[in-house]
Design a protein around this nucleic acid. Structure first.
Lengths: 114, 114
DNA sequence: CGAATGCTGAGCCATGGGGCTAAGTATGGT
DNA sequence: ACCATACTTAGCCCCATGGCTCAGCATTCG
């Protein structure tokens, strides 16, 4: 598990920007064209396009061009990847709680400076 | 909801690096000192410290120094923030599915690409 | 055809990220 | 006192990120 490490880099990197999170929010409601997505943002189109490209490279969206319009649609896989990471992390945390409990109960003599 | 936007930047940025994700993984098992955390990584200490600082600034860990040893411990709040974001996103998606359903059911004449 | 629309590409700029070394400080052990 | 340990600070390097402009290209509309 979690051998997707390199993909996670991009997946999380993409989320580290409010513009991109907003785009994902918008796309949650359904597909949209580039210019439609760009409208809310006070930003030149080429700048905005970089965000789109990053979202596509990281797997958050898929795009395809028809005529002169490029349409963007959300992908679900990255969500699953994030949730998997969270679950793994949570299981570590909970495993630790278990161990801490048995540690406290059974061997209260050895102090671990961990 | 989601007015934590600036905090999310840091929270996700912190996850966009494998070293930092590994540190969080280690800390899931319990607190550790800087040098203990740094041991698995083939990296100079100052470089590693930057990761620790970023994790602390973004809220993923809390540290405190006792004597010459700085101990790091995981914080749970960022997990909650990530889960909240995921839940919001999912609700958008599902809201859309609902609408898509009624869309499919009631007006089946307009074809939507994707 | 010609103009408007919707991107796209090239290139610049400033900032920040992730790595390094070298030297400094502070504590703990002998 | 002295040395080792455990960071910490300062500064440098290179490349990536996020923004811009200006010019180009393809499609659609009149």
């Amino acid at each position: 598990m979690a051998q997707h490490s390199e993909q996670l880099n991009g997946i999380f990197q993409a989320l580290a920007d409010p513009t991109r999170r907003a785009v994902l929010g918008r796309l949650g409601k359904g597909p949209a064209s580039i210019s439609e997505l760009a409208k809310p943002f006070d930003m030149a189109l080429p700048s905005f396009m970089k965000h789109i490209q990053l979202l596509e490279e990281s797997g958050w969206i898929r795009t395809h061009k028809e005529g002169r319009v490029r349409t963007c649609a959300l992908q679900k896989k990255p969500f699953a990847a994030v949730e998997t990471w969270l679950a793994e992390q949570r299981s570590l945390w909970e495993g630790r709680t278990d161990r801490l409990e048995s540690f406290v109960t059974t061997l209260q003599k050895k102090e671990e400076p961990e």
